[in-house]
Design a binder for these strands. Structure first.
Lengths: 120, 120
DNA sequence: ATTATATTTCGTAGTTTTGCGAAATGATAA
DNA sequence: TTATCATTTCGCAAAACTACGAAATATAAT
């Protein structure tokens, strides 16, 4: 009889990142920001995307809350750009999950994926 | 004035795959099946995972519906394994999104990511 | 045929997500 | 101060997600 344990933090983190990417508008924003090492403004996005201002703001909030983007006040606008550290983390986490060669981020060496939490 | 267009199918596909991976139980199953080129049974999973039979069945159904796993009847059990073709597609789609080197899948050459649908 | 086993589907309930317009915030310009 | 602009927060409603137990299905064993 196998024991029921809690799912690992690794698994939960993947699920959390995936959750953020589970809406096309958020994928669009992430892709745009990662592509050109660029930045964007809510006002521009609302013109480009099929979504209203308040809904867009919610998506930005979620991305912010997940630590994937950050806003910087710039006169009457807010300039959003990628949080490179966490973006790199997301990439690494997915690379490991997808069994590809791990991305070299900082000095971490962990490349295995834990499926269950172990008490220690 | 920039025109509002529908978000691209590429974006929607990424969001869809991400949606499937947005629950740790589903991530667990996918990881398990992809790891050893292995298979699994609902009955074993329900012993390993902190979720009831019916909830587990729902997760399997979602994975099946997304085309990522497939079940094969084997006497009183159902043996689940990865749908390798779609798993490869998922990997490719994410690799492109994450700007990594594209994975060589079949003979497709498209490696760019479309952000908007274009009428043609 | 009856019983037992493996799994799914159904019905239900609580939670979360999503999107909108209206109102609020905050900062600049007149 | 008042007006204006960019953005967010609030309140709400519709839809989707998650989980559970009970019932249903399907197959094997007796």
């Amino acid at each position: 009889m196998v024991k029921k344990v809690e799912l690992s933090d690794d698994l939960k983190e993947i699920a959390k990142f995936a959750r953020v990417m589970s809406h096309p508008v958020r994928v669009y924003i992430l892709k745009k920001l990662s592509q050109l090492n660029s930045c964007c403004y809510s006002g521009d996005l609302v013109d480009e995307l099929p979504v209203g201002r308040s809904a867009l703001s919610q998506h930005l909030k979620e991305l912010k809350h997940a630590g994937l983007i950050q806003g910087e006040i710039e006169a009457p606008f807010i300039k959003y750009c990628l949080n490179k550290e966490n973006w790199a983390k997301l990439k690494k986490v997915f690379a490991v999950f997808l069994d590809d060669a791990p991305i070299d981020v900082s000095s971490e060496k962990k490349i295995s994926l834990k499926l269950m939490n172990t008490k220690e």
